[in-house]
Amino acid sequence: MNETIRKVGIVGIGNVGKAAASTIVHENIADELYLSDIDSERAKGEAYDFEDSIELTQSRTRVIDVPLEGLAACDVILVAVTERSQIPSQSRLELLKGTAAITYDIVPRLKKAGFQGKYVIATNPCDIITYLFYKLSGLPKSHVIGTGTSLDSMRLRKQISKVVGGIDPRSINAFMVGEHGDSQIAAWSHVTIGGQPLDQFEEDNQDELGKIDRPSVEDTARHFGWEILTRKGNTQFGIGNELAFFAKSILNNAHIVTAASVVQDGEYGQTDLAIGVPIVLGKHGVEKIIKLRLNDQEQQGFNASAELIKGYIKQTLDEHEETTK
């Protein structure tokens, strides 16, 4: 009998990596989960700990600690690396110098080891790091995926739910697009509730709800991660579950629609960057980029966000070229 063994790797076993690993193990998403960290003893300890946790569950996932090159045989590698001393005070962009240096180290090593699977990247600043992974890996752009505005879009749906009478967020279709950061925008022109356009929903329910304060809802969604970070010092469970969700969707060929940071080739009028937009996610990674027809105001905001990302990509590439002369 031919068996396909589903292999997922995680590089970076900090708070986010552990949260992703926990979901993968306890939801039985992969047959084998490989953990790699610059602190190899820490990775080994986490693998042992997960081993202890499995007996009381239905999971049969094997958890194995490996050196970085040991991830090359995986179908999907989840990237959750960061410099442990770094906690941004104002913007995820503050992390760039440290995480870019890590990226320039690990991607060539995995390429040399023969990795041909899919990368899913949560490392911040996500859009810039995703683009660096694409440039350094030699993989098709469909195989390099940042979590981008996926969690931000969930936060937007949750905030809309709160102001429209508690309708289940899963019945709300709404996306944050652009940078996974302060310049992202809500694509309000495409928000639907139960399939009904938001403008129509507001009109039909104006006596009960009045007019939704869209700037306030959008701003809350945009900065919700900071609400968590300032209270507990990190975010982990939301983004960890998001990483596991991406891995599951790829392994199961789910063809599910989600926001993600992906490399653009003319979509939305942009090239040579990765940025958050809705995609179809399946076994080939990015099966399709969904092109929303943004209104003029939204397109202007999206373009401004794209220019910000491009500026930091150029800065990073220039700095790396200067240091390698």
Rank of each mutant, 00 (worst) to 15 (best):
G225T: 04
H26R: 10
L317C: 08
V257K: 14
A187S: 07
R155E: 13
S189Y: 10
E298L: 04
E27Q: 13
P88C: 03
T103I: 07
I54V: 15
L273I: 11
C126M: 11
D199C: 01
R84F: 07
A260Q: 10
L35G: 11
L136S: 05
F50T: 06
G238N: 05
V25S: 02
I87Q: 06
I212D: 05
E307W: 10
T147N: 10
A19I: 08
E242A: 01
Y48K: 14
Q206N: 09
R42C: 00
I313C: 03
T4F: 15
E242Y: 07
E32I: 15
L35P: 13
L136K: 04
Q86Y: 12
D65W: 11
G45A: 10
F133C: 06
R62G: 03
V81N: 03
L156K: 05
E287L: 08
S85D: 12
L110H: 10
Q159W: 09
D296M: 08
V286M: 00
C74G: 01
A80K: 00
G70N: 10
V63G: 08
A19R: 09
K211F: 08
T123R: 09
D265C: 01
R170W: 10
E69H: 09
Q200S: 12
Q159F: 15
G311F: 03
D152G: 09
A21Y: 14
L209E: 02
G240Y: 11
Q300W: 03
K44I: 12
G98Q: 04
D318C: 01
L198A: 01
E41R: 10
I106E: 09
L93M: 14
A43V: 01
I160D: 08
S137R: 02
E298A: 00
V76I: 12
Q116A: 13
S53Q: 14
P108K: 05
K18R: 15
Q299G: 00
I5S: 13
A254D: 14
